[in-house]
Design a protein around this nucleic acid. Structure first.
Length: 425
DNA sequence: TCTGGGGTCCTAGGACCC
DNA sequence: TCTGGGGTCCTAGGACCC
């Protein structure tokens, strides 16, 4: 059996741990740039605020009544680690899946004691971290997701729900579950399934796997096996290095200025290179993209991207920045007001295993050695002295790409200075 | 004035090879 | 006179997730 444990309204719950005045109030956490609502307390959901609702379209009375906070990822990441530490006390097999959910394996655990064990897990997470969680347990990941959904929806479960593959209870749940509520079925597939008369999770479970595969893909076929209780989805190992690294941001205000765009692209490239070195990889290519704001119907629209090959696999910020700048020059067109740009590192290889250029003698090796030492020193300074202690080129104040986040709470768990400020305020 | 950011997997189709 | 078939690799784009 496998459990899915996830935090209820996770970001909101994290904020509430450190500011109990938020209890019982409608609370929302906003995306970057204070753009959209990405987490909602139950009270905010009750007011009809949808997931992803743009802040500027919320009715004024809701904006007045609700606490709407900028996201504080340093805090949420730290709380996520704490939750996983508690989970590890209950099973050696914990797979973090996202910042707010983890799969916990209970293979070989006595079935009779599983429910009590999961209730103890839930209580302990609540007591030790302050985060309320829901626990869904089933033979497969897809069913565990369904069980988790039930655990939260039906108060009678008190946060823990077990589903067997062939229980009558499981059938009743699946018959009432819209197929688009399943993990992996969203609007597009939902529309196509509806045309074939498949509206509920149970109908999908009863469909012919081969037929579904021919109409959709192997992904949908696996879903059927999972619903029937045969594990068919393996998670990508979260400890494996990423295959791509993307850094992108919307601008705080639109800009058509190439210098500003260059500054943003260089900032993103530098951040991406840091991530690259942290996971011990090197990139062989990168992609730069640029776009206007698609929501502004009256504005001329432009979006484009370009892939730039790197001369040799590298994790050197200077090489990444140089290539990213060239990519931007190739993309940039005058006369548009741009809203977002980004840099994606592609074709990643492990630093130790990378293939060196042919005909590259001792000079090349010496150059790479200097690069390694320089980057290591750079990362160490920024780690120990604070982010952006050392950076490439001059920062510009009030540049277009500076993020808006005017509603951020203190980074309670990772910044002593901000914590002290709260205490003395 | 104001609509996030960072990932994964799969498939189709073209290029290329023998 | 005759114009195949099968394989691999790569890329772009779709769909989905949190």
């Amino acid at each position: 059996m496998i459990a899915l444990v996830d935090g209820n309204n996770f970001y909101v719950s994290c904020e509430r741990v450190f500011d109990p005045r938020l209890e019982g109030r409608p609370v929302g956490v906003l995306s970057n740039n204070d753009g959209c609502v990405v987490a909602r307390s139950e009270e905010l959901k009750a007011l009809g605020v949808a997931m992803g609702a743009p802040l500027h379209l919320l009715p004024p009375d809701i904006r007045r009544r609700a606490a709407l906070l900028s996201s504080n990822y340093a805090l949420y990441g730290d709380m996520s680690r704490r939750v996983n530490q508690v989970l590890a006390e209950f099973s050696p097999d914990v797979e973090p899946y996202s910042i707010d959910e983890s799969f916990v394996g209970f293979d070989g655990f006595p079935a009779a004691r599983l429910e009590a064990h999961c209730r103890a897990l839930r209580d302990t997470v609540g007591r030790w971290t302050g985060i309320p969680v829901g626990v869904g347990v089933a033979p497969t990941r897809v069913l565990a997701k369904v069980a988790n959904h039930q655990a939260k929806r039906e108060p009678a479960h008190e946060g823990v729900c077990l589903l067997g593959a062939d229980d009558a209870a499981t059938r009743r749940v699946l018959e009432r579950l819209p197929v688009t509520a399943l993990w992996g079925v969203a609007r597009r597939s939902g529309e196509r399934l509806a045309l074939m008369g498949i509206d509920t999770a149970w109908q999908l479970r009863e469909a012919d796997p081969r037929w579904v595969r021919s109409r959709f893909s192997v992904v949908m076929e696996r879903l059927i096996w999972e619903l029937r209780g045969r594990p068919s989805i393996t998670l990508d190992d979260m400890s494996e290095p990423r295959q791509r690294i993307l850094v992108s941001r919307s601008f705080g205000r639109l800009t058509g200025d190439l210098d500003e765009l260059r500054a943003a692209v260089r900032q993103h490239g530098a951040r991406a290179a840091e991530k690259l070195r942290r996971q011990g990889s090197q990139a062989r290519a990168l992609q730069v993209f640029l776009r206007t704001n698609p929501f502004l119907a009256g504005e001329p629209q432009y979006r484009n991207s370009v892939v730039v090959a790197l001369p040799e696999p590298t994790d050197d910020s200077r090489a990444v920045l140089e290539a990213a700048s060239r990519g931007l020059e190739a993309l940039f067109l005058e006369g548009y007001r741009y809203q977002k740009c980004g840099v994606m590192l592609l074709d990643l290889v492990e630093a130790e295993r990378r293939q060196l250029p042919l005909l590259d003698g001792p000079a090349g090796e010496a150059r790479r050695d200097r690069s390694r030492r320089l980057m290591a020193a750079l990362d160490r300074l920024n780690r120990e002295m604070g982010r952006d202690t050392v950076r490439f080129g001059l920062p510009r104040r009030d540049s277009a790409w500076a993020l808006r986040c005017q509603r951020r709470t203190p980074r309670y768990t990772t910044r002593w200075d901000e914590l002290m400020r709260v205490k003395t305020a």
